[in-house]
Design a binder for these strands. Structure first.
Lengths: 252, 252
DNA sequence: CCATCGGCTTGATCTGTGTCAAGGCGGAGC
DNA sequence: GCTCCGCCTTGACACAGATCAAGCCGATGG
């Protein structure tokens, strides 16, 4: 499964002994459920790593030996069909916890879009730790519940929305995201940074790259958005875009 | 939101005093995490109800005051767009726990497909109970994790599979389900009972009723399945169907 | 400054699935 | 046993988005 994987991960000795106490992502992650005084127990279980853009750190089908926590950067999470068709199931930013699942192997792959820092935990060891910290277990349940709600929303998008509605939903979703998930963010929230390629957007929305491109061009032509560079979109008419995203607006 | 709801639920006084100890669904549900000796505490929180086919017991947007546990029958879970487009996000059978979500309102609706028995818990009260039973919290996390994996699989289906692959996946998914989820089940597992209409299947798979009907007819014509009645499908060539479902088989 | 290359856009055409329309079938009620 | 009605099937046609095919644009490196 991972035969072609070359140097996907780089251990980072410089942070080996740095405890979770200094982690910039802690406030946004499940680790916030653990008290400062107990943080050392968590720290000894964690391994800090960096992942370069384009590198995978989870491969669908591989034995699920670790949990991960994103401390900076963004990853795409995806599933593949044998002929190469791909569905991106989500993007994981700062604070995102990865690897939940009872199964013994990963059900998706994860690849860095940008330089990332991640925090890795051994599954069995974290499981044991969780027995002592029900607050963290509770936090994980909250996280999983929220992701489930998001997944259902995405099913509605994939099953029933038009290309135009999908793009509008995607842009609004990005604009409404908490700042810490986004990494570097140009000032107003109406400016949306897109660290992923058009192909990634297409595979996230169940479209082709051509349809994504055409639809964005059309939204631009209608004055709903501006596209100063291909990885930046400025939302000019937020309410109108929301109307399209939620299916309230007829056509275009 | 629920102005048009009429007698959606029928309280069942005959089971009011019957404790969870006699619940047939207990073994399959999150309640199994609670020890027999503590079961009384759970029992006092629960209200048994029956729901007639076609009745809703959760309405998207309503305040989320309860959790539910399905003890028999099947429900469809769905989201709607303002113009009536519908996406069924799943079917909930015996043992299924409903209502996970941090939000204060439900993010989906639930409607009975068949006569159902459900067990209702007040959210705040169950939350308090969970503090005393971390095993149940752990079980809920497991359940949520598994649903997340299933949701991602469904995103792959909705975003990237053909109509033929969707129907094959759906039938295989039904055939592979644990028996207790299905309610009454005609003997061999190769016989699949479909308690939902073609319209429901279409709304679950992101297709139209016509495409579902045509595709099933085609699979029948190829000898992969038989359709003795419109709500029963017999899988004749399981392996071939799995090949189609997973996208390994070219076309048809 | 030019060449290269990956990612993006745009145009022409095709096609899988949706839409519209007409029966068929089987269970419920009289 | 007949009628009704909801659900399902089948056919003809339409269209949103896919596919195929150029070409553009901006970053990178010599």
């Amino acid at each position: 499964m991972s035969m072609t994987r070359i140097r996907p991960l780089i251990m980072d000795p410089s942070r080996r002994d740095e405890p979770c106490a200094h982690c910039g992502a802690r406030a946004y992650s499940v680790c916030s459920a653990i008290d400062s005084k107990d943080l050392e127990r968590l720290a000894v279980l964690s391994t800090q790593m960096t992942v370069e853009p384009g590198r995978s750190f989870i491969e669908e089908g591989d034995p699920a030996e670790h949990f991960f926590n994103v401390t900076s950067g963004t990853a795409k999470l995806f599933k593949l069909l044998p002929d190469g068709r791909r569905q991106i199931t989500g993007f994981a930013g700062t604070g995102h916890f990865l690897g939940l699942a009872v199964s013994s192997s990963y059900s998706f792959s994860a690849e860095a879009l940008e330089p990332m820092r991640i925090c890795r935990f051994s599954r069995p060891k974290l499981r044991v730790l969780l027995d002592d910290f029900p607050a963290m277990e509770k936090r994980l349940l909250e996280v999983a519940s929220n992701e489930l709600v998001a997944a259902q929303e995405q099913m509605l998008l994939l099953g029933r929305k038009t290309a135009r509605e999908r793009l509008a939903s995607f842009l609004i979703g990005r604009a409404d995201m908490p700042t810490h998930c986004l990494g570097y963010q140009p000032s107003p929230t109406e400016t949306v940074r897109l660290p992923m390629t058009r192909n990634d957007i297409a595979d996230y929305l169940g479209l082709t790259i051509e349809t994504v491109s055409r639809t964005l061009t059309k939204l631009k032509g209608e004055g709903l958005i501006e596209i100063p560079s291909s990885s930046i979109v400025v939302i000019k008419r937020h309410t109108a875009l929301v109307g399209i995203a939620t299916g309230e607006t007829e056509q275009g």
